[in-house]
Design a protein around this nucleic acid. Structure first.
Lengths: 341, 341
DNA sequence: TGTGTTCTCGTAAACGTTTACGGAAAAACG
DNA sequence: CGTTTTTCCGTAAACGTTTACGAGAACACA
């Protein structure tokens, strides 16, 4: 059906070797023949069979991004990732690489799927998102010697792989600073209960900032819940049912914040009025919620580009005109002040 | 590095042919040898090289979903697709197929990228989303004889490919019915200006329902805009600045509705109070917006599963125990009444 | 003219599988 | 015991590329 390099060769009456060399821009082919080959390729609508190339070269020319929804995340999805992927894809395409997004079922941990991608050599490298504190995916990949980069740090952080993360620690601290400045002293923090590393970073920043202001860290004002709306809805009351309830809550996740606000509403508490609410990672939902939620916004698309660059620099086949490899970068989150605090 | 079938064969002192047959469950291999092969495969952590299989078999065992953001869609993404993809992925995985999502840059039309996937044989079939009225992707694929399925219909609808769509026509009509029932007679319709087919379907339903109620269709109450927030913001005033403005607006898209509501707010008009607002495709944003927007909700995850099934049934290698192939299905949208109308 | 160099191309092996074919051994059958 | 069938396995080709190697022709140089 589709034309192969043999068809081209036969059509031009030259050997497949020459055709291949002409197509791949090698030097040892006559300028004239190359011209003819290229024209014939266009005429016969030839493009090389990817499996053939991959097999011979041992490279697939594609990068895998592992994506799967959080457990119970039927409806929401992560709109978050689309701009990130756009940036990632854009940069990879410039280097002739395809981005393939490998979907998993919601909830099942990626280990199995990751193994498949690696072992069947479906991609030349992978990009992981939302690294965990202790991330067995990272251990697996380093041990397997498979190239990868991560969106997010993990605790075993000194390993030599490119990683790009957001400064959740600073965001947590900034959020506290802002709230303290506005007169709050009882500030709650609600984060996902999963082992997701950003949850720890956020809490560290939160704690440090409180201490800096001479405010004791009250463990009753810190709570963990499922990383979705139901989680926020369930866990927020736990922090409120104290004789000395908080006057402000920082949510580490937009979905949890929405659930939390629902719980607050049922208690007759109005965010932005009776309670200051801050969200660490901004999404469109924060903007459209009423009241619009003050939140910290990441530069997703540039981050995607950057992580692609870092990954490329770590791949021998693409390592540019030198320059030391960039191993980790931590990007700031920008405060978007709205109406909820 | 990674073990090949040759390693296995050498290790077991049998031929690679036998190893392959054992692994693939062929009948002509001794039960005992098969056992040994499987054990050795586990021990040596063998899994077949995907490129090798694909090359030999002429099949990649993966399905491509073409995804790219709408032009100008930097921030929002389409949370829409995640649950759909989850369903799609789940069903494909059950048949041993991988789902790969091929990202494109925002705005660039998919034709080029699609050609690449097809011509380099990266996938065995593709799934298209948001078909256009006149969709050259469909023409290309049918002409190339490449298997595919679509989320959404297109006008050249009698071609023989599986397609699953939402009943936008009925939703448009239902929306009108509901509004008329509640006393509205000046009902505007705002939809994307792109050639997206659902925009036409929606408008058909809208028109028919109006006529059924004996209400003349006023072209001044119909407007097209960019399929994003800015589009809704820009186009909504155009419909309002009439001496006989509408008392209700149906938006064909959540993002456009949000922009439209912003424009209304600036005119001092409160949705759900001074103006009834209905959205055709529900998303989490509709739910969290204030006022919560009445919207028509699709069953995304089941749709994903179903489309996978339809696609599989159309692939010779997977066609189940017969039953005629399902070519097109149109699923209902469920009205979620909220506070905006 | 002889020797060395440069261009250009064909040959063939290799990547890791799957599978058609055939043959040896074992089993079944008369 | 001879013949036929069945069971099991090895051989080798094929999928579509890329690339190391070598060879012929053209050219340069002395």
């Amino acid at each position: 059906m589709a034309s192969s390099i043999h068809d081209l060769a036969r059509h031009l009456n030259i050997s497949i070797g020459t055709v291949s060399r002409a197509l791949n821009g090698r030097a040892d082919v006559n300028a004239d023949t190359r011209q003819r080959v290229l024209e014939a390729a266009r005429a016969l609508n030839y493009s090389p069979n990817q499996s053939g190339r991959s097999l011979r070269q041992g490279a697939t020319h594609s990068i895998a991004f592992m994506l799967q929804p959080h457990p119970g995340d039927q409806e929401y999805g992560e709109p978050f990732f689309i701009p990130f992927l756009t940036g990632l894809q854009g940069r990879l395409a410039e280097s002739g690489l395809d981005l393939i997004v490998v979907m998993g079922a919601p909830g099942d941990y990626q280990q199995e799927r990751l193994r498949r991608v690696v072992e069947t050599r479906r991609a030349d490298a992978v990009v992981l998102a939302w690294t965990r504190r202790e991330d067995e995916r990272i251990d697996y990949l380093t041990q397997a010697g498979f190239p990868f980069a991560t969106l997010g740090r993990s605790r075993s952080g000194d390993k030599a792989y490119p990683s790009l993360d957001l400064d959740f620690e600073k965001a947590g601290a900034d959020a506290v600073d802002r709230l303290v400045e506005r007169g709050h002293r009882r500030i709650a923090a609600i984060r996902p209960s999963l082992d997701l590393n950003f949850g720890y970073l956020f809490l560290d920043g939160y704690r440090k900032a409180l201490r800096r202001h001479g405010i004791a860290v009250d463990p009753h004002l810190i709570a963990d819940g499922f990383i979705n709306e139901a989680g926020g809805y369930e866990v927020t009351p736990r922090v409120m049912r104290r004789k000395d309830p908080p006057t402000a809550i920082i949510f580490n996740n937009d979905a949890m914040a929405l659930g939390g606000c629902k719980a607050l509403a049922e208690m007759g508490i109005k965010p932005g009025h009776d309670m200051a609410v801050t969200v660490i990672v901004d999404t469109p939902l924060c903007r459209y919620f009423s009241p619009a939620l003050t939140a910290f916004r990441p530069a997703l698309q540039p981050m995607g580009r950057r992580l692609a660059e870092m990954l490329l620099a770590s791949l021998p086949a693409f390592a540019g005109p030198e320059g030391p490899r960039i191993l980790r970068e931590v990007w700031p989150l920008e405060l978007i002040a709205r109406d909820s605090d």
